[in-house]
């Protein structure tokens, strides 16, 4: 009983507002309720604050249900990311392809690493995907060995992403060239025989971070993203709308 009294004595003004705004954990809210039962003046104060909130809600909550003005949606949908000319030029060197790079103002060092990631992903697709007889070194039938082998050589553990949800089955993989460590290439194919590759490396500058971004190199679409030293490049003759869901699926699988 004494303990109860002590707790009640500790109810502060902040608790009252927290109670009004629904910010208290359930146990604390119960303690406030008990306190209010014994303090009618405070209970009246709390009720008045709630009434103020309700009045605000009655005026402004209806805005949530209004249709979003078309020009606001258009502002978001049609905004063009800033175009980084120097990187676009640099990115075009490899394979003589014009890689349009939509930079969003990342750190310049990261930007170079990411640009290179995009180039190499596109190049890997162009070189290996059309190969009928030797597209991969280790076939999907041996996927356990493939994953162990690539993990070992790259110095990281990774699961081979399953893209069956989006209609892509694993063809297999191969070891690739990185900078300070080997990189990996995984190849997938869908029901129409269209292929895409994941170029994966683990030797980026440590602090690199980038959300999936799309770029185009001729007919090859590329989505790259990075997390710490690990960089991902997804490449194939697909549109942004087709590649981004694949990137998000891979992200979801590798982060869990």
């Amino acid at each position: 009983m004494d303990a109860m009294k002590n707790t009640r004595a500790l109810i502060t003004t902040e608790d009252l507002h927290g109670y009004v705004d629904g910010k208290l954990p359930p146990e604390r809210a119960e303690e406030v309720e008990a306190y209010l039962l014994e303090h009618p003046d405070k209970a009246a104060e709390v009720e008045d604050y709630r009434r103020i909130n309700r009045a605000l809600g009655s005026v402004f909550d209806t805005v949530l249900d209004e249709p979003i003005p078309a020009d606001q949606i258009a502002a978001v949908r049609d905004a063009r990311p800033r175009f980084a000319v120097p990187l676009a030029a640099a990115a075009g060197l490899l394979l003589g392809i014009g890689l349009a790079w939509f930079a969003q103002g990342f750190d310049a060092a990261d930007e170079l690493a990411l640009g290179q990631l995009a180039e190499r992903s596109a190049a890997a697709y162009v070189v290996y995907a059309p190969d009928e007889r030797h597209p991969v070194e280790v076939a999907a039938s041996d996927s356990e060995h493939l994953s162990a082998w690539l993990s070992n050589r790259m110095g990281m553990t990774f699961q081979i992403p399953g893209l069956g949800n989006l209609g892509f089955e694993l063809v297999g993989g191969r070891l690739m060239v990185g900078d300070s460590a080997p990189a990996a290439l995984l190849m997938y194919e869908n029901g129409q025989g269209r292929r895409l590759v994941i170029y994966l490396r683990n030797d980026l500058p440590e602090a690199t971070a980038a959300e999936p971004r799309y770029a185009r190199a001729g007919k090859t679409g590329v989505v790259i993203w990075a997390r710490g030293a690990t960089g991902f490049g997804l490449a194939g003759a697909f549109s942004e709308e087709e590649l981004l869901p694949v990137a998000h699926l891979i992200q979801a699988q590798l982060s869990s």
Binding site: I68, I73, F102, P212, E240, L244
Partner: peptide
């Protein structure tokens, strides 16, 4: 970018 845009529209 596409996902970011839909996130943004959802906040409007």
């Amino acid at each position: 970018m596409l996902r970011n845009r839909s996130l943004l529209i959802a906040e409007i």
